[in-house]
Write a protein that binds this DNA or RNA. Structure first.
Lengths: 238, 238
DNA sequence: CGCACTCAGATTGCATACAATTTAAACAGT
DNA sequence: ACTGTTTAAATTGTATGCAATCTGAGTGCG
């Protein structure tokens, strides 16, 4: 566990919810892979890092467990999730159901200012795409997810927004684990195209394209159930 | 807070997760309205009822807060959720996106034994429908929700199943709050029809009917935003 | 040399103690 | 009487202590 920005960001109203802040910080660390899947998150360690008691650290870990970013085993502790290929498929199946609805919802309610903000976001995403190195790659995955989250936030359904929060976060984990290549080179242009269709008010086509977009993301994954027979095979070979 | 079955049910493996058991128990109490919306759930009281410390009670309340069945305000405590009409609409909008997918998933994977179980469940539901009294009404709402949950469980997507758990629970609250009449007299026959279509393998029509079914449930609600202008109006009148 | 066992260290589960905050009740002033 | 203030009770937020459990190194035995 190395560098975690302690989010001294907003000392205002939100600040007085420390377990939430820790959750946010760990969440970010997980989704852009500063914390690798399988990493143990001991209560004492997390508490020490953020200068709180185990009680608060524990609460944060519980929340992350609920969102599926962390798996806890009784009497053993909390670990960064290591999604299986099957879980990955379920994540994307869920997104295929929800995101077209998000898009049509967003198309109805989006404003000109929203669109401007989206364009900015997409340009930033493009910047990361053209950079090299693992840091840029992580930032790219994060930014790519943020597009979907922004869409969810303008769709005006808090419940779906929360579901998407979870799904996008877990997708980032999956992409980092199973991603094949220069991931979103194609995905990025699709973001632009989706935004254009929404701007034009063509919700139907935008939703369709979103479906394809999700297909493309999943198609770029290498979801072989390697672990399932690993032991048997290993024994058979030796 | 009156009678909460202490679920002495399974003293076996599952037993060693007390906060989970408490969550389950409170959850049931909330969705069939033994705990009315707005009721305060103090940590000490919950702890005393289940004979655990505040720590464990608190964890249970945190989980319920995450699923939206309970709202907690900082330094004030936890209260049974009192969903607004707007939240209600969001809940049903979410279900409209997810449940057709659940149905098609279930249609692919359902077995003959599953179908038999479903039939049993529907018959039990019918029994409650024909009884009188608030207890039967509560049982009816619960059983009606269980049909949707069983569908989700055979669809084979753990994530969607969890989402449905939350949505169905919150729907029960909404129906109890805003329900107009002999709620699911129509809804029930639709359950049968949906099951029949699934059995025949006609996933498309089953999904369509599910959509209509959700529409019918929501149509039976009285979602006037009464509170929004209540104060202003009250002042204007006097 | 390998295997099982034991025991110490570390970590989680839970209860409890204390500090911070809210609530409402008593009280005083007008 | 009524309003505003003060004060005490109750409740939540957080830290910490103890018991239960797990892990792994060391040890003894085959």
């Amino acid at each position: 566990m190395t560098l975690l920005e302690k989010t001294s960001a907003s000392p205002d109203l939100l600040t007085e919810d420390r377990s939430m802040a820790i959750r946010e910080s760990l969440r970010n660390a997980i989704i852009d892979r500063r914390l690798a899947p399988g990493t143990k998150l001991s209560e004492a360690e997390v508490g020490a890092l953020f200068d709180v008691s185990r009680t608060v650290a524990r609460a944060a870990l519980q929340m992350l467990t609920f969102e599926g970013l962390v798996k806890t085993e009784r009497n053993r502790g909390a670990f960064v999730s290591n999604p299986t290929p099957d879980e990955a498929r379920q994540i994307f199946a869920s997104r295929r159901l929800i995101e077209p609805g998000i898009v049509t919802g967003a198309a109805e309610r989006i404003t000109a200012e929203d669109i401007a903000r989206f364009r900015e976001q997409l340009i930033e995403e493009e910047r990361y795409m053209n950079e090299r190195g693992p840091a840029a790659r992580r930032a790219e995955i994060k930014a790519s997810g943020d597009f979907h989250l922004m869409l969810a936030s303008v769709a005006g359904n808090a419940i779906l927004q929360r579901f998407m929060d979870e799904l996008v976060a877990r997708s980032s984990l999956v992409i980092a684990l199973y991603g094949r290549s220069g991931v979103s080179s194609c995905g990025h242009s699709e973001h632009f195209a989706i935004l254009d269709l929404i701007e034009r008010g063509d919700a139907k086509r935008a939703a369709d394209l979103m479906l394809h977009h999700i297909d493309h993301i999943e198609a770029d994954l290498d979801l072989q159930p390697k672990q399932g027979v690993a032991l048997k095979d290993a024994l058979a070979i030796t």
